[in-house]
C-alpha cells in the first residue's frame, strides 16, 4: 500500500512538473517519467500488458514524437505564458484535493461499475474473442492516423503553367 501511494505521488508530481516547466523539452521528459510510473502501477495491479503498452508506446513513442515536434518548432516557437496561471496553480490544486477527498468517497457508492466476479480465460481470449470489434476499431484508428499525417504533410505539386 505504501509503495502504491509513493508511485501515485510520483505520477502526480511528474505530471505537475510537466505543466510547470517552462522548457518544453523538460516538460516532455517529465511526462515520460510520469508514464513510467503509471506503467509500474499497471504492473502492480496485475495488468502487465497494459503496463508494457504504457511504457513502450506512451513513454517511448509519444515522447519521441513530442521531442521531434519541439525540435522542429524551437526557433521562434516560444510563447509567453500567463504568470498568474502558475502562481495560482498550487492554490487551486489544494482546493481540488480537499473537494476530491470529500466528494469521491460518496460518489463511488453511487456510480455503477463493472460487476464483481472472477474472470475466466486468459488475456488473449478476452482481447481476441470478447473484444474483437475493439481490434477492428483500433486498425481503423491507426489507418485514420496514418492517412491524416500523410495528408497534413502533403507537398504542393509544382504548377508548370506558373
Amino acid at each position: 500500500m505504501v509503495i502504491q501511494i509513493l508511485l501515485l505521488c510520483g505520477l502526480i508530481i511528474f505530471s505537475g512538473l510537466a505543466i510547470l516547466f517552462k522548457d518544453l523539452l523538460k516538460a516532455a521528459l517529465s511526462l515520460a517519467v510520469a508514464s513510467l510510473f503509471l506503467g509500474i502501477i499497471f504492473f502492480r495491479l496485475n495488468a502487465p500488458y497494459a503496463g508494457v503498452f504504457e511504457i513502450s508506446v506512451v513513454a517511448g513513442l509519444i515522447t519521441v514524437l513530442f521531442i521531434l515536434t519541439i525540435a522542429l518548432t524551437k526557433k521562434e516557437g516560444e510563447v509567453e505564458e500567463a504568470k498568474l496561471a502558475k502562481v495560482v496553480f498550487p492554490l487551486f490544486f489544494i482546493l481540488f484535493l480537499i473537494i476530491d477527498g470529500l466528494v469521491m468517497k460518496s460518489l463511488l457508492q453511487k456510480v455503477p461499475s463493472l460487476p464483481s466476479g472472477p474472470e475466466a480465460g486468459t488475456f488473449g481470449e478476452v482481447l481476441w474473442k470478447q473484444r474483437t470489434f475493439d481490434l477492428v476499431a483500433q486498425i481503423g484508428v491507426i489507418f485514420a492516423g496514418v492517412l491524416a499525417v500523410l495528408a497534413l504533410f502533403r507537398k504542393k505539386e509544382d504548377d508548370k503553367d506558373e
Binding site: F42, L45, N46, A47, Y49, A50, F53, E54, V57, V58, L61, I62, S113, L114, P115, S116, G117, P118, E119, G121, T122, F123, V126, L127, Q130, R131, D134, A137, Q138, V141, I142, A144, G145
Partner: peptide
Amino acid sequence: KNSVLLAQSLAITYIVVEVSL
C-alpha cells in the same frame, strides 16, 4: 472489481487511440 483482463484490453485500445490522436 476482478475484471482486470477486460480492463487491460480497454486500456490498450485507449492507448492506441491516444497515439493516433
